[in-house]
Amino acid sequence: MQQLIYFIQKYRYFLFFLFLELIAFQLIINNLSFHKSKFINSASSITGDFYSKTNSIRDYFQLDTENKELLNENLILRNKLEKLSLSIDTSPITKIFEKTDLRQRYSYIQGRIEKNQFRNNYNFLTINLGKKDSLVPEMGVINSKGILGITENVLQRYSRVRSILNKNSKINAKLKNSNYFGTLTWDGLDYNSTQLLDIPRQAKLKVGDTIITGGMSSIFPEGIPIGSIDNIVNEASIKRIINIKLFNDMSNLKNIYVVKDFDKQQLVNLEKTSNE
């Protein structure tokens, strides 16, 4: 017993150091797994408010470019609307619209990025939407140019989004000109390019082909742009890696939309039913 007390006396600093170091490692490991990262993240109201205050100063300097981007998006949407109204006007009415045809599946919630991160291997964004805006975990986050990430921790006023620039991120994606789908991942090297894996070998690929979201999951609607094929590594082998150049500049983000899927609960329940 005396020996033990003597041991603790002698190594008390080292034991204290080990104790704190173990806590730190536990936090690191928790941070890497999807649903455990509750304690340390920037979505808390203290850090969220802090970033929100500093951002409101910074915003003034970016108003010009932000306005141009929003005008651009408006232009695209207006053109789409014009085309759509033209096609509705000219097409002969051959069927009566059912109530289910007009049902809306997705709605979008508008928000803003409070903290952007693209430097680390496991990147997270903080957005100014939370439980008060009826957000839940695992909702898609997009902007006018493409996808950004998936919500992970939702607190009262802020939430943390797992960026597509995160080594744990896996998103269903497909080619625009065919229905072959694969998994979008990131290798942690370049923030302008992500990797598309598991595309079947018979799929014909060309540099410059557009990649869009696949709609196999209930997180993103189908057809949201991601990027274009930059180059293909190991073209003719099983380890084929397709490098995607993102449409978004991930280092310069501001306005976002969160996708709300009204059918999500139904889809989840359907997938849960047993196979027998």
């Binding site: 806590i23 730190a24 490692f25 890497l32 920037s42 991160q117 997270f124």
Partner: peptide
């Protein structure tokens, strides 16, 4: 280090390395 981790979403890497 933990305050820095808090602000930069890095789990505990700043805390662990600064403590070391």
């Amino acid at each position: 280090g933990l305050i820095l981790d808090f602000f930069s979403d890095t789990g505990g890497i700043h805390a662990a390395s600064l403590l070391f």
